[in-house]
């Protein structure tokens, strides 16, 4: 009898399938039980008493990929140690937690705010924008700092950026307010020159009314410029960009 090769190959595959399923079914329960026993032992040794290791998948079939459950009150270090101890058992295929702590969260994506405020604060923490004596002209040595501030504010284009000028209390307050406002305006102009749109910049001067915490109002260290990203306005598409109804 001549058997055509494709039929012979298919018949062989069916036989292999039958033998594989029969062989696996007769041994997988024992393997699963042995892994489970070893896993419980490792869990106890690593202080994860409440944690259970299941070697049965959601459809009730024995598996080498265990699901760990319980132990929600344990600290992350213990849970991590237990998971690694179970994963180290020869034959264990993978580890997952039933509470899904390692799974990505679904639903709406939470956008984190831009970090330009922190970046600017970090820039101005160690250095200050300096001005010429009793004038609103930015000192030449501070131009580089203005460059860096403009660079740090660039990710927040579209936000309202408040520039607030402060002085110390040496001198009459009306003059201080005027000077602090002129200095804030000078910084605003410098930022505009560096490509920051005027629409989002608000300059104001408060004189010596808001000294730095812990400093006397007369302290020269109160002379400063502060930046605050006070609002974020969503970008609106221009009419040209807005698709019309079809």
């Amino acid at each position: 009898m001549i058997v055509r090769p494709p039929i012979a190959i298919l018949a062989g595959a069916l036989i292999v399938t039958a033998v594989a399923i029969a062989g696996a079914s007769s041994t997988d329960q024992d393997l699963s039980a042995a892994l489970s026993q070893q896993a419980q032992q490792n869990i106890q040794e690593n202080g994860g008493g409440a944690i259970k290791a299941r070697f049965i998948n959601r459809w009730g079939h024995p598996t080498r990929h265990t699901i760990l459950s319980g132990g929600e009150g344990l600290d992350e270090g213990t849970r991590d140690k237990v998971a690694k101890a179970v994963a180290a058992i020869p034959g264990v295929g993978g580890i997952s937690w039933s509470d899904g702590s390692m799974m990505a969260q679904g639903g709406e994506v939470v956008l984190s705010p831009l970090h330009c405020q922190e970046d600017v604060d970090a820039l101005l923490q160690a250095r200050t924008i300096r001005f010429e004596e009793s004038a609103s002209t930015i000192d030449a040595s501070s131009q580089e700092l203005i460059d860096e501030v403009a660079m740090a504010l660039r990710p927040c284009l579209g936000s309202i950026i408040a520039i607030t000028g402060h002085t110390d209390a040496s001198g009459p307050e009306p003059g201080n307010i005027q000077l602090s406002r002129e200095r804030a305006l000078a910084v605003q102009r410098a930022l505009i020159d560096r490509g920051i749109p005027i629409d989002g910049l608000r300059a104001q001067g408060v004189g010596s009314a808001e000294p730095v915490d812990g400093l006397l109002p007369q302290d020269p260290a109160n002379r400063r410029i502060e930046f605050a990203v006070v609002a974020t306005t969503p970008l609106k598409p221009t009419p040209v960009d807005t698709p019309g109804p079809r």
Binding site: G23, A24, T27, D28, L31, T63, R64, H65, G93
Partner: peptide, 8 residues
């Protein structure tokens, strides 16, 4: 993945 499918 169940053990039987891995064996198969």
């Amino acid at each position: 993945m169940p053990i039987w499918s891995e064996v198969l």
